[in-house]
Design a protein around this nucleic acid. Structure first.
Lengths: 238, 238
DNA sequence: ACTCCAATGCGAACAACGTTCGCGTAATAA
DNA sequence: TTATTACGCGAACGTTGTTCGCATTGGAGT
């Protein structure tokens, strides 16, 4: 309830519906603001200077208007962020399906991950937002369709999809938040007191540093191994 | 850099070291504040009323002091949260190892996940914090030790551990942030326009709702399958 | 063409927040 | 006792998100 208060209704399915309706009955003043402009400018600020740099006054300045004007197009700062999240999800470009389901799943997961990681400051918002915007749902539709086409049983498709997406989101959020000052993990652990943490320091010294990208690729690989042994597939018709 | 500014030095290894030293040279006034008290009260507020309810003034009120007094024990609001995160990680209780490595890994992952999910409002902070506090590192030490004892190759241990922990954290963050108004996912998807999203709605209608706990258990199971096929283990001595 | 009216822009103000300043006080070390 | 240092805290500062009231715009209805 308290977190529902923090988020408000923003991002729910009904909210998106209202939003689409409102966008249609809008009266466009020449040279006036549009939600698209606002969202785009907001993303520029967030990506370049962090989430806390996105101030309503600052955003208004960038757009050449007053802060109060923004509230004619957006109810909240939070709504603004919700809109930005779906905008980012629209950047994910699944191309044509790969020949095997493993390649295809790995490819989709990596595309999602790297798109999200390209906007690291937005990731906290991605996590707290119900992903029900048009771009989010369109992506879901496309991915589920492909999984069916690859011969997975309809009952299995949704759980598998959810597992993969949750993993991609979670890893992106973790990597985007942590790895800012470079991949310093092994050095940090090696520098801890060896008498107190013998295993941690010993392993840290003999382990290669690992980019978060490689770590995610490894995770997906492990998961695809697991999916292969666990879920049967019908042969592809063609 | 901008996110480093947001976090400050708080949570780094050097910061924790300074913190321990400072705690020792402290002068304890009778009935005075302690960091432990402050952290505990902060957690009560965050768990009960959300992250945004944790105000310095509000926290001071709960402790019966003035807001400015808190800054004698804590440099920032963010430092307070970093301390709270390590406090929570101290709640994780790995018991004695389970007979098989699979059971043991699954058990550890579930303990971590459920401890984190018990403090859902703190999860955004967990993600942006380098987990280098005493409780975090002690947990790491114990888990790595166990993995070696189960016969995993020393070179493999750290990547596997990181994959599992990242997955647990990511899933916890996602579940804790989203599932607030109940597990409404299938209904929501089923209610979308069927002509625009045929696959999404069709699958939503024939799929059971799934708790985030079950989803995480499934994810771990899939991952353990993958680890089993991918990483060799030496036989256990005993 | 004229009138209406809802949609839009925005300066000014408000409440709440994190944080700092400066002073008074209490406890420890010499 | 005395000097020093840590602590407590009322008051204030600068920013923040958001609201209010009013002026302005431009399309719909006649």
């Amino acid at each position: 309830m308290s977190s529902a208060t923090e988020i408000g209704r923003a991002g729910s399915a009904a909210w998106w519906q209202d939003r689409r309706a409102a966008r249609h009955r809008r009266r466009h003043r020449q040279g006036g603001l549009t939600i698209e402009q606002i969202t785009r400018s907001a993303l520029v600020i967030v990506d370049g200077e962090g989430l806390s740099a996105l101030t309503m006054r600052r955003l208004a300045d960038d757009l050449g208007t007053g802060a109060a004007s923004l509230y004619r197009h957006v109810a909240n700062r939070e709504e603004l962020l919700v809109e930005a999240v779906d905008h980012v999800l629209g950047e994910v470009e699944f191309g044509t399906p790969k020949p095997t389901w493993r390649e295809d799943f790995a490819n989709q997961a990596n595309l999602l991950w790297s798109t999200l990681i390209a906007h690291p400051h937005l990731l906290p918002v991605v996590l707290r937002t119900p992903l029900l915007g048009p771009n989010a749902v369109a992506g879901r539709e496309a991915s589920l369709r492909r999984m069916l086409d690859f011969g997975f049983h309809p009952v299995d498709v949704q759980p598998i999809y959810t597992v993969i997406v949750t993993t991609a989101l979670g890893h992106a959020a973790f990597a985007g938040a942590i790895e800012r000052p470079g991949p310093l993990r092994p050095e940090v652990y090696a520098a801890l007191p060896a008498d107190e943490y013998p295993t941690v320091t010993a392993l840290a010294e003999r382990t290669e540093p690992q980019t978060s990208s490689a770590l995610f690729a490894l995770t997906i690989d492990i998961m695809l191994d697991g999916i292969e042994t666990r879920y049967p597939r019908k042969e592809r018709p063609c």
